[in-house]
Design a protein around this nucleic acid. Structure first.
Lengths: 217, 217
DNA sequence: ACTTACAAACAATCAAGCCTGTTTTTGCAA
DNA sequence: TTGCAAAAACAGGCTTGATTGTTTGTAAGT
């Protein structure tokens, strides 16, 4: 009621509308797809005028690449947080796989699938994203390197396991589009965790809850 | 010169132009992406008028789904051929993985990545494709089931290996969009084949050329 | 005063679907 | 076999609608 938000600085106003626009862009990318995410739609979803959008992002491509980069930065932050906690708590390989599945299937890779085709055919678009994607992979690498160091596993072998894991997760999520079958994905992820676990001896390799148990449910 | 192709039957004419249009559609989907594959472009690439296109395919969505279904049918045929040859020759798991990588990375999954976003947001579009995709997976299943029967491996375990393999390949190809690094993919595929080989004892599991050798090249 | 943030109307482009002709093939009857 | 009408294959123009980038105008902050 008595709310009178007088005098926000321009920097604040700008940052907030930009954030809202980028969030709305990701929402639309995920919910309606990149081809249906028009600039009027984005502005409407963000609750601002299209004029405001064009002020902050001169072209459609600009707001899309900025939104994706922003999303990846946020994911990177969360991943580094997980990396620290994982290193401190000395978690198992299962936890890594579960975490990555959660991160990737919670919009990240669905949004990625929306823009990958554009990246494949638009070099400038792609060039905007390659650096942040690299940053993402650096964060990944840190987590698995920690696991390798702790378990004494071969670093190169660990990297292969990491990359195969990421590829499996990508492929699974891609498959969800045309095949909806939760049991299938649960089972496959469980299988994969079993495989990964065998690569890391000792504590990091032994699962606490034993993922097989879930099969009995 | 003296070529006078008089009186092709209507069925022939229709079949040929349809084929050319569908082939051109897949070409454009792969080369320029689904958003850039406009009906004028498709007609031009096929060497027919736009009127001919609309005659055979009333809407853009129609020609795209038909083209994809057609592509999948062709792939299915080749896969069944491979399956027969594989069963007769008693090949190794390496051969399966190599074959699947070849099939998927030779346009199939790149084209798939083009239309997956549309399938995710357009139920009718998706409904047109689910049956042929199922057919594709049935062909896959036949190959691996044969391998399992021959090696005496557990069928369910084999199915997990198959699905993980397909997911891994999908994920790798998706990654190629933003990361071009042939050595990386060669190495990862080699790693994967090593892993799969260990799941199948005996002849089917032992590679002839030993994929490690390629690492020395 | 001057710059930045925002609003909204405007113009140009372009693709999809439709519709109207034209040519080729086919089925049928004289 | 030939003549002819109907149907299918093909060609191309037209209309509508939507979207993008631009531009002009206004309010808020520096």
């Amino acid at each position: 009621m008595g709310r009178t938000p007088r005098r926000r600085s321009q920097k604040e106003r700008s940052a907030e509308t930009s954030s809202r626009l980028m969030a709305a862009t990701i929402d639309l990318l995920h919910d309606r797809g990149i081809t249906r995410a028009t600039t009027p739609d984005i502005a409407r979803a963000a609750g601002v005028s299209r004029g405001a959008l064009t002020h902050h992002f001169p072209t459609r491509e600009t707001i899309i690449t900025a939104s994706i980069a922003n999303m990846l930065h946020l994911v990177n932050e969360d991943m580094r947080r997980f990396g620290r906690e994982f290193a401190e708590s000395g978690g198992s390989s299962d936890e890594i796989v579960d975490y990555l599945w959660k991160v990737m299937s919670d919009r990240l890779f669905y949004v990625t699938m929306e823009y990958l085709p554009e990246a494949r055919h638009n070099d400038e678009f792609k060039a905007q994203l390659v650096p942040v994607v690299r940053e993402f992979h650096a964060g990944l690498d840190a987590i698995w390197t920690e696991l390798a160091a702790r378990t004494g596993a071969d670093p190169e072998h660990t990297r292969n396991v990491m990359n195969a894991t990421m590829c499996c997760i990508r492929g699974m999520i891609a498959q969800t589009v045309l095949r909806q079958d939760q049991d299938y994905y649960d089972g496959l992820l469980r299988f994969w965790k079993d495989q990964v676990r065998q690569q890391f001896p000792g504590k990091a390799g032994e699962a606490k809850g034993k993922s097989r148990k879930r099969a009995a449910l």
